[in-house]
Amino acid sequence: MRDERVSVVGASGDRAIRGTQAQALLPCITSATSGSSRLSAGIVVMPPRASSKVHVHEHSDIVVMVVAGKALTLVGDDLIPYAHAPGEFIFIPAGVIHMAVNLSSSSPLTAVEVRTDPHFRGHFRTRSTCLL
């Protein structure tokens, strides 16, 4: 017997949204698509040479796994660089300042992102509004 709480959700382009951080977001697992109450997951695509603003997700842990391309994530008050490539994961705890950079000048960066926010919303503050 199937468990009605289990969901399989495809990466449908009709849910894609343009994020405010120079990237396309494709929410896949959310409270709306699967009934999740604690997690969300989606695909993030960042254009060549793009970078996000320095920001913080105050209430959401984030795990990012690069699928294609090479990323650099600058983390913490001193923006310490962490490089990650396809198949590698980075964990960023809630409340930690960070920014993402696509290191390629010619290819998009594609990653799977999991958040402890069931809506996969970009609730964040940029560095200019962060208390450092």
Rank of each mutant, 00 (worst) to 15 (best):
M1P: 09
D3A: 09
D3P: 10
R5N: 09
R5H: 13
S7P: 05
V8P: 06
V8F: 14
V8A: 13
V8E: 04
V8I: 08
V9W: 09
G10D: 07
A11I: 07
G19Q: 11
A22G: 00
L25F: 06
L25K: 00
L26N: 02
L26H: 12
L26M: 13
C28F: 10
T30E: 11
T30S: 10
A32M: 11
T33Q: 14
T33K: 01
G35T: 03
R38D: 09
L39R: 01
S40L: 10
S40E: 07
S40H: 07
G42F: 02
I43P: 01
M46H: 12
P47Y: 06
P47E: 00
P48H: 05
R49K: 15
S51A: 10
V54A: 14
V56F: 14
V56D: 06
V56R: 12
E58T: 04
I62T: 13
V63P: 04
V64R: 09
V64Q: 04
M65C: 15
M65G: 03
V66P: 10
V66S: 11
V67G: 11
V67Q: 06
V67A: 07
K70H: 10
K70Q: 12
T73W: 05
L74P: 00
G76L: 09
D77H: 06
D78A: 11
P81W: 09
H84C: 06
P86N: 02
P86S: 09
F89K: 03
F91E: 04
A94V: 01
G95V: 06
V96L: 12
V96Q: 14
I97A: 11
H98G: 02
H98N: 08
M99G: 01
M99Q: 15
M99F: 08
A100V: 04
V101L: 13
V101E: 07
V101W: 09
V101R: 15
N102G: 13
L103N: 05
L103A: 01
S104Y: 04
S105D: 14
S106W: 04
S107N: 11
A111P: 00
A111I: 10
E113H: 04
V114S: 12
R115V: 00
R115K: 15
T116W: 06
D117H: 01
D117F: 03
P118N: 05
H119E: 15
H119G: 10
G122E: 13
H123P: 00
H123I: 02
R125D: 06
R127K: 11
R127Q: 04
S128T: 07
T129D: 09
C130H: 08
L132F: 14
L132D: 01
